[in-house]
Design a protein around this nucleic acid. Structure first.
Lengths: 244, 244
DNA sequence: GGCACGATTTGATCCAGATCATGGTAAATG
DNA sequence: CATTTACCATGATCTGGATCAAATCGTGCC
């Protein structure tokens, strides 16, 4: 379904799911005056926790993270935003986490008020948003299993598998050849995603490499010779297939 | 807002948020033939992972849990369903987790197809569902901080605070008097919520009692003499207040 | 190229929470 | 009422991952 949506949007200047629903000829014209683009560099804070936001947005390129930080500095990344992901909340203008750019990020932003009006007047869009937020909810719950019950090794494998699945669904990838991830996250970023320390991340990556599950090329590139092996390490139920 | 919605529904036979949006005189009549009730006893499985569901539902009374279980038996509760919570997914009929009753649960169920039609034809309802699923998404992300970064003691306090906040928002509670939680979850259930073992749960409850943060009355009743103290133990940011 | 500094790896040690083990208590059952 | 059974508390020990502490490795910069 997702990839179908992308295909339908081939001629839309904004190539991501959130907007695809808006990309029918009529709405597209309508949108021209309520949307605009913003760029961010790695490390930039896109949204501060509690800040009032006058826009919602959809990620076009790059990776961003939702961070919850405690007073004493403990941090948890509670979500990764990849191209097509939606940022913000129609109907509420601030959130309790902040959003920061991991790599160079470009957002397609929509001014809040006209966007909310659009959602109200275009059921199609509201339904798409509902579907997307429920997908995110399922993903968040899946991640709770990782954080609550998986070992360090399983967590690393789960993260790699998750990113790989997100990337290959966007760009189907030639079957057979080794899969490649160009990880924009630092070791510390990975640690904050997985609820562990950067040292443990580093060690487990080394172990997975030693055991032939992954190869490391430079600091940020991971090669996966065998996706099934990785999924095994992630201790995921076999069926990663889409339900329904 | 939530409590307002409840108040508006005073004359609706189904007293919970999900349905409140449907409880305007016109829809209520309409709904009579697509909704029905179901009851479950503690331990009952309401939905099996992967099972095809022909309904969506809203919790009327009781508590249910969403469980993810791994092949080797490790389990994580990825969500608690309390009265007013929504169960199911319009537009998709199966999920990867199963749902089990913690206490006696009664559900108000809606036949899937007519409900989906209703959502499509009544933007009001779709918007309410969107709002609810985004609330749940925020809650799930909040929980990821608990699972990823909090200590055992903080986790227990966080769970008690979360349940307390859910209950007092439903039924405002007389300020001043000690707050009471009648915990339907067993020690093992709490452990599976918090990603720990039942022994650790038991120990930390004892410690919190020893330190005067809580009192235990029998096995399932917890008294909270000072909510602020509890929130301090939970290491939550001060403002539990609703944003916006 | 060579230098400097942040990112990463790797080693040594520690500790919070898991695991293993035992006994207590209250509700369910015959 | 006696007995079984599920739950719960608590003690003893173990261990995975945290913490502390150096080396290396890359990368950008002069």
């Amino acid at each position: 379904m997702t990839s179908t949506m992308l295909a339908e949007c081939a001629d839309c200047p904004i190539r991501h799911r959130a907007v695809c629903a808006l990309c029918e000829p009529h709405e597209l014209t309508l949108l021209e005056d309520i949307k605009y683009y913003r760029q961010f560099a790695p490390g930039d804070t896109i949204v501060w926790a509690g800040e009032k936001l006058d826009f919602v947005a959809s990620v076009v390129t790059g990776m961003a993270a939702l961070n919850r930080t405690m007073e004493d500095g403990r941090r948890q990344i509670t979500g990764l935003l990849l191209p097509s992901d939606f940022l913000g909340r129609p109907g509420r203008s601030s959130v309790r986490y902040d959003v920061s750019a991991i790599s160079d990020v470009s957002l397609c932003c929509f001014r809040r008020k006209p966007f909310e009006d659009l959602v109200e007047s275009t059921p199609h869009i509201g339904q798409r948003l509902l579907e997307m937020s429920m997908d995110e909810l399922d993903a968040a719950r899946e991640w709770m299993l990782v954080l609550g019950r998986k070992t360090a090794r399983e967590r690393i494998a789960s993260l790699l598998a998750m990113i790989l699945q997100r990337e290959t669904q966007a760009k189907p990838a030639d079957a057979g050849s080794a899969l490649r991830i160009d990880l924009p996250l630092s070791r510390e970023g990975i640690a904050d995603c997985l609820g562990m320390t950067l040292e443990t991340v580093s060690r487990q990556l080394s172990h997975l490499k030693r055991d032939g599950v992954i190869q490391l090329e430079g600091r940020r590139t991971v090669l996966i010779p065998d996706m099934d092996q990785l999924l095994l390490e992630a201790a995921d139920d076999a069926d990663g297939g889409v339900l329904d």
